[in-house]
Simulated assay, not measured.
Amino acid sequence: MTTSLSDIETPAAVIDVARTQRNIGRMQDRMNALGVSFRPHVKTTKCVAVADRQRAAGANGITVSTLREAEEFFAAGYDDILYAVCIAPHRLSRAQGLRDQGCRLRILVDSVEAAQAVVEAQSRRDPFEVLIEVDTDGHRSGVGPEDERLIEIGRILHTGGATLCGVLTHAGNSYELDDPEALEHLAEQERALSVRAAERLRAAGLPCPIVSVGSTPTALSARALDGVTEVRCGVYVFFDLFMTNVGVCAIDDIALSVLTTVVGHQSEKGWIIVDAGWMAMSRDRGTARQRHDYGYGIACDLAGHPLKGDLVMIAANQEHGILAATNGRLISLENRFPIGTRLRILPNHACATGAQFSEYHVATDNGIETWRRFNGW
């Protein structure tokens, strides 16, 4: 085990474990107060060590976005898993394989065709457990809560022998907001329309025990969750610059950063060149369309505190990042940031930046631990 971040090869993904634990506790406490079960989405971290801390805090089950995640977490002892992407027919045999091994894997559909494929592919001795995705904000996927297809899908699953577990939604439009009142309104819309979909299924004589909602902004903005049984969200565990613009966290809540080394200067341009380019930070420039553009990320000292002068990664090539002061002032680069200086860059999107790495480096009382993460589908 290395003893210092100065001993790690760069670029590297670094977790601030104190911030991570604080974020986990904040969300779990909120879900407990709202009286709902919490099923965190592990797609952000893809890391068993982080999920273990979420489970220890009180989480019930996990949410995944790939079957690779389901397989990895099941092998690590997680057997209550929701695969929250509408199932493609070719993945049904792989999903059934997990269930055959004892994994309580629930899957998702939002079309008549997918429901029919599930019924045709399932095992009679172990039918699939299925939720129907409901569209509550026009963001991406799902069937409308008043759409007749909702009932048709439910009947296909129920009469075909599958276990109809309930409805699920994701208020993805929350990522486009930055006003607390608007976020509260969308959280209530997410709740109300999901509950309405559940009521319609029940009125049609179909089972609907689960009403599952979730996004980090709405989870942190909802005032009440009457009729909801569980909440899912994931990026809250690390947060990122995008979420600071949405308004649900502060810079000091961001728990993931990229460790990088200064490798050059362009003094006449006011540039610092570092060895973390877009292969480390990702190509995600989501903050460019928000109220504050953070480039590819903001620079911090080795302790994780933003540097004075508002240094931002204004540009990135594959293995090079360019830092400059956003206030336009030229600074004494060679004196303040000599070659070899270690810095940490806070990312725009924790999910995308984490995906660039196969491991996290975590500072503990005993030194720097390495936590495995994984990618793939």
Rank of each mutant, 00 (worst) to 15 (best):
R191C: 09
M31G: 00
A171K: 09
L311H: 06
L323R: 06
A57L: 08
I24G: 01
W271Q: 11
A75C: 06
A171L: 08
G270E: 02
G25D: 08
V235R: 03
I156P: 03
A114P: 00
G328H: 07
R39A: 07
T2W: 11
A75T: 15
I62P: 03
C86G: 12
A299G: 11
I156S: 01
V263Y: 08
V134M: 02
M281C: 09
D284M: 02
A250V: 07
L67K: 04
Q116M: 10
Q266W: 07
S221C: 10
T229C: 11
H170E: 05
L241N: 01
S37W: 02
I272W: 05
T261H: 09
D275F: 14
E120P: 03
T287C: 09
D301Y: 12
A316H: 07
T159I: 06
A299H: 07
E9I: 13
L183Q: 03
A95Q: 06
Q28R: 09
A203E: 11
A70W: 02
A222I: 11
R30G: 05
T370H: 14
L168D: 03
H349F: 13
V246Y: 01
I331N: 04
A197P: 02
D137A: 15
L150R: 01
R223G: 15
R196N: 05
R196I: 08
E268Q: 15
V14H: 00
R291A: 12
L330D: 12
L323I: 13
G264M: 08
D226H: 11
A56D: 06
N335H: 14
R232H: 15
Q101K: 15
I298F: 06
L105F: 10
H139Q: 13
I345W: 02
E9N: 13
T63Q: 12
